[in-house]
Structures are given as structure tokens and as C-alpha cells.
């Protein structure tokens, strides 16, 4: 509350040294245990720490990521469009990161393609068709699955999907599709649970209005519920995609880790995260390869920011 125009006689105010007027100094405020200020110091420093963390991550990764262009004089354009990644070649080493960028994109979109129908279908099932069963049984199980560590998904991929690929599509079985399936399954519970929430948020009055004009259940879902939940559903999918994009170890375990551009989804390939995971430990700080890996990390950070901006945009449009 702001107080203006205090029509108080200054003489009386100072004359009455009432306890009501707070004229305690900074020292007293920080040492008294019932004081407000001590709590505030704690609370505000935590809030500031959050800003520091984000700024530090962005700054450090940007500075480190730009080294390969500034210090090692790699060309940014050839770096992101080049398809030749031969950092170890003694003569004329080449740093073309396009296969990894492509790999990351391919895994992300394929994973979304696999996960979206199943997740949205499940969400509709939970929130529209079998509400009781959905909230009592499916929802808790899905929430537990959200918490299953990604390496476990990787392990499952390694022991079930890779052998399956080997038998049915030849080759080693490690390929782009296997990576996409693993991440697709990994993001399923996340997407399904957010999607179910947004479908539940659609007011019942809309459904009743639709049934009242003789629509079937499916028509109600397709024409009324899904459009009403629209941008929340898209947000759920984009959130899933951003998780898929950032996933490292699970993908790395099944994708084959080949630095060339894949010709089909049954070829082994690599992503930004997998190449970083694999090579980071074997490089020395300050080498060109090390700097190049940091640049890949920087690209990863940039694309993550793009996802964040998209999600913000979507949720802002929903609120508006």
C-alpha cells in the first residue's frame, strides 16, 4: 500500500516518541531475531542466485563455444554446413558439424512423430473415455514412468530394439530409427500426462453443448475438445521434443555413433549430444577438437533457447 499526502503535523510526529514509529537502524534490523530483514536477505539471495546461474551458464558456454571461431579461426558457416568431421586427420583436419545437427533434428522429429499419436490417444482415453480408470490407474503409472532414468530407456533399446533392427533390417541394428524409437518412448509419458491435463482443463459446458446438438463422442472430441485444448497440446508435444533433443546417453547407446551423414533412417548416425558425450573425455582442453566440441555445446544451448522461446510463445498465446 502506498501512502500519499500524509497530513500529519511533523511536530507531533517527532514529539511523540511512540513505539509505533520505526526508526531502528540497519544493525538492529540485521541482529534482531524477530526482524524481517534477516529472512529477506536469505530469500532475496536465493532469487539472485537463480539469475546468476542462468547468466553464468549462458555466458560461459557462449564464450567457450565461440573459441573455435575466434581463436582457432574455423569458419562458422562451414562449421555448421560442412559434412566432413575428421578432426584427427593430420593433414587438413575438417570440422563439419552438419551430420550432428541433422542427426539431432532427425531424432527429435522422428521421436515426436512416434510419440504424438500414441500419447495424445492415451491422453484422450484417460481424460475422455475412461476417466475413472484413467485417473486412478493410468495417471499414477505414467507419472512413475516420467521418473524412470533415461539410461534405463537406453538399456532397453540396446537389449530389445537394436537386436530387433538387426534381425529385420540388417546391419548392426544400431541406427537412427532405433535412437528415435528410444527417445520417442522416453517422452511418451511426459507428453501424455501434460496432454491429459490440458484435455481435462477443457470446461464441461463445451462438451455438453456439443452433445446437446447431437454430436457423437468422436465428433465432440475432434471438433470441440481438441481445438479447445489446442495450443496446450502443441505445448506438450514441443516440450517432449525439447526433451528428446537434449537427451544424450540413451540415444548414444543405440544410434551407432557414425560421423557421416546417414542416407536412410536405417543407417547409423550421431547427434550433437552423442558426439559430445563420446569425445569430450578424450580431448585436451584448448585443442581445436575440444573447442569444436564446445561449439557444438553452444549450438545445443542455442537450439534449447529456441525451444524455450517457442514454448513461452505458445503458453502466452494460451493465456491471452
Amino acid at each position: 500500500m502506498k501512502i500519499g499526502k500524509v497530513a500529519m503535523d511533523p511536530a507531533t510526529a517527532t514529539a511523540s516518541k511512540s513505539k509505533l514509529i520505526n526508526e531502528k537502524g540497519l544493525f538492529w534490523r540485521l541482529t534482531d531475531r524477530t526482524s524481517e530483514s534477516r529472512g529477506k536477505v536469505l530469500i532475496y539471495s536465493s532469487a539472485i542466485l537463480m539469475i546468476v546461474a542462468v547468466t553464468a551458464i549462458t555466458l560461459f558456454l557462449t564464450i567457450q563455444g565461440l573459441r573455435s571461431f575466434v581463436v582457432d579461426h574455423l569458419n562458422f558457416w562451414t562449421f555448421i554446413t560442412g559434412t566432413q568431421w575428421y578432426p584427427d586427420r593430420a593433414q587438413n583436419p575438417s570440422f563439419g558439424a552438419f551430420p550432428f545437427i541433422f542427426g539431432s533434428m532427425a531424432v527429435t522429429f522422428l521421436a515426436a512423430l512416434i510419440a504424438t499419436p500414441i500419447a495424445i490417444g492415451t491422453a484422450i482415453f484417460m481424460a475422455e473415455l475412461a476417466k475413472k480408470w484413467g485417473t486412478k490407474v493410468m495417471q499414477p503409472i505414467i507419472e512413475i514412468l516420467v521418473g524412470i532414468p533415461s539410461v534405463v530407456y537406453g538399456l532397453i533399446g540396446l537389449s530389445l530394439i537394436v537386436p530387433f533392427m538387426r534381425v529385420h533390417f540388417g546391419g548392426s541394428g544400431f541406427n537412427l530409427l532405433a535412437g528415435a524409437i528410444v527417445v520417442g518412448i522416453m517422452i511418451l509419458p511426459t507428453v501424455a500426462s501434460i496432454a491429459a491435463d490440458s484435455i481435462r482443463a477443457v470446461p464441461d459446458s463445451l462438451r455438453q453443448a456439443s452433445y446437446a446438438i447431437g454430436a457423437t463422442k468422436w465428433q465432440t472430441i475432434w471438433r470441440v475438445v481438441i481445438p479447445a485444448a489446442g495450443s496446450s497440446l502443441v505445448t506438450a508435444i514441443v516440450l517432449g521434443m525439447s526433451r528428446a533433443f537434449g537427451e544424450a546417453l540413451a540415444v548414444q547407446m543405440v544410434i551407432g555413433n557414425v560421423v557421416t551423414l546417414p542416407k536412410s533412417i536405417f543407417d547409423p548416425s550421431a547427434t550433437l549430444t552423442t558426439i559430445i558425450t563420446l569425445s569430450m573425455g578424450h580431448t585436451t582442453t584448448g585443442s581445436i577438437l575440444n573447442d569444436a566440441l564446445w561449439s557444438l555445446g553452444f549450438i545445443l544451448l542455442l537450439i534449447s533457447y529456441v525451444f524455450i522461446v517457442i514454448i513461452r510463445f505458445l503458453s502466452r498465446r494460451r493465456n491471452a
Partner: peptide, 8 residues
């Protein structure tokens, strides 16, 4: 912070 990939 919540949406950064853990590898980052």
C-alpha cells in the same frame, strides 16, 4: 534452468 538439456 528447467528446460536446459542435462548435458549442457
Amino acid at each position: 534452468l528447467a528446460s536446459l538439456p542435462s548435458i549442457v
